[in-house]
Simulated assay, not measured.
Amino acid sequence: MTPFERRTRRAQERLRAADADALVCAPGRDCQYLADVESEQSDRLQLLVVPAEDDPTFVVPALDAGPIRAATWVDDVRTWDDDDGPGTALDPLLSSLDPSRLLVSERMWARFVLDLQERCPEASLGLAGDVLDPLRMRKDETEREALRAAAEVADAAMRDVRALGDEAVGQTEADLAAFVAERLDAHGGEETAFDTIVASGPNGADPHHASGDREIRAGDSVVFDFGTRVDGYVSDQTRTVVFDGDPDPEFETVHDVVREAQAAGVAAVEPGVTTDAVDRAAREVIDAAGYGEAFVHRTGHGVGLDVHEAPSVVAGDGTTLEPGMAFSVEPGVYLPDRFGVRIEDVVLVTEDGAERLNRTDRGWRC
C-alpha cells in the first residue's frame, strides 16, 4: 500500500465517523495528499471522489486522463469530453453514492460547488478539512523527510545571502529576491514556495511587504522571508540582518527581544501542549519588553503541502500538539516608519519536544 492509499483509507475511517458519504476534492493540495496528483483547477471540471466505503474515483476531462492515470494509485479514472460534458461521468457516480452529506475542498471554485449542489439537491455540504486537517497536521515519515530537505535548501540559500556582506548595499529588494530564487534553485529547490519578502529599512515594518525597488543602504535592517518546495513540501524561514553599517539605535534591543521570544516559543513545543500556549510563551516575552502592541500577527501556522495550513499558533486555537505536527514559530516586532524584526523557523513536534528544521544563524550582523 502506498503512503497515498494509506492516507486515503484513514480519511475514509474519519468519513464514516463523521457520518459523511464522501469527500469531493478539486485539484489542489488535498488531491496531492491523497492521490499523488498535482494539478490546478481549470474551467473543465476535475474531481477526486472518495466514498466512505469502497475505492476512490477520479472524474476528469478526457484530455487530462493520461497524466493522471500515470501519476496516481487510483484505478478508477472516469473521463468526459467537451461534447457531452462532465455529467456523463459524474452523474452515474453520484447516483450510486446517493449521498446525504458531502464534504468538499475549501478551495473548490464556487461554480463547481453550485453544480454539485444542483446535482445532489438532497445532500448537505460540509468542508473536507473537517476530515483531512487532522490527518494532514500529523506528517508521516515521507513528509517529514521532505520538510527537512526543503528547510536545508532554504538554510543554504540564507547562508549565501549572508555571504553577500556589504556587496548587498546598493542592490534593490527585488534584486535580492531574485538572488534568493536563484540560490534556492541552485541548492535543489523545486520553486519558490511563495513570493519572497525582502523588506529593507522602514519597509520591514510591513510584515507582508512586496519586494520593490528600494535600494539597500548601509545601516538598513533587512527582513528576509522565503521558502521553497521539495517533493511538494515547503520551507518557510525568516531572518533579519544588517549587511553593513550601524542600524537604528533601538534595533539591537528589538532584535534581542524577538530572538528571545522565538526561542521561548520553540522551547514551549512538546506533545500535549496547546498551540495557544506556544503563542503565549512567545508573546509574553515581547509584552514584558514593552513591545506587545507592535507584535501584530499570530506566532505561527502549520506547514506542509500548503505554506499556511492547520494548525494556527494563535490565542484561542487550542490544538493539542502531537508528534509529527509541523508549524512555524515566527514572532515579530514592527515599528512603523523605522524598521521591523521577525525571526522564523519551522519546527517539527517530536516524541518529547521539538526539532528545529531551520538551523542557520539567527543573529543580525552579516
Rank of each mutant, 00 (worst) to 15 (best):
Q46C: 12
W73Q: 08
T88L: 06
I68K: 00
P86D: 06
V49D: 11
A35V: 13
A35T: 10
L47V: 05
A52R: 13
A70T: 09
A65C: 03
D83A: 15
D43G: 09
D83P: 04
T72F: 05
D82R: 10
E38Y: 14
D55G: 01
A70R: 11
T57A: 12
D84R: 14
Q41M: 07
P67F: 04
P51E: 05
A89P: 06
V50K: 01
L93N: 03
W80N: 05
L45A: 04
V77N: 13
Q46T: 14
T88Y: 07
V59M: 06
G66Y: 00
Q41Y: 04
L45E: 08
D81C: 05
L93G: 11
F58E: 07
W80F: 06
D75L: 12
D64E: 14
E38I: 10
E38P: 12
P92R: 12
S96F: 01
D75R: 15
D36F: 03
V59T: 03
L48Q: 10
L47M: 08
P51S: 10
G87S: 05
D91K: 11
Q41P: 05
V49W: 07
T79F: 06
F58I: 11
T72N: 10
P56A: 08
D91Q: 11
D54C: 00
P92T: 07
V60E: 01
D55T: 11
R44E: 10
P92H: 09
T88Q: 01
I68F: 04
E38F: 13
S96N: 14
V59Y: 03
L90N: 04
V60K: 05
D76M: 06
Y33R: 07
I68W: 00
P92N: 09
A52N: 07
S39M: 15
A35L: 13
S96A: 15
S95H: 14
E40G: 15
A35N: 13
E40M: 15
V50H: 02
D64Y: 10
A89F: 02
A52L: 00
A52K: 07
S96K: 14
A65L: 08
D54Y: 00
R78M: 11
A52W: 02
P67C: 04
D64L: 12
Y33I: 07
S96E: 15
D91G: 01
A70M: 00
D64S: 12
D82P: 07
D55Q: 03
E40L: 15
T88K: 02
E38A: 15
L45W: 04
D36Y: 07
T57Y: 05
L45D: 03
V37A: 02
A65E: 12
W80E: 05
Q41A: 11
D36S: 13
R69E: 13
G85Y: 08
G87R: 08
R78G: 04
D54V: 00
Q46W: 08
T88M: 01
D43V: 13
V37P: 06
V49E: 10
L34S: 11
I68E: 09
W73Y: 14
S95K: 14
P67M: 05
W80R: 03
T88E: 07
D55S: 01
V74A: 00
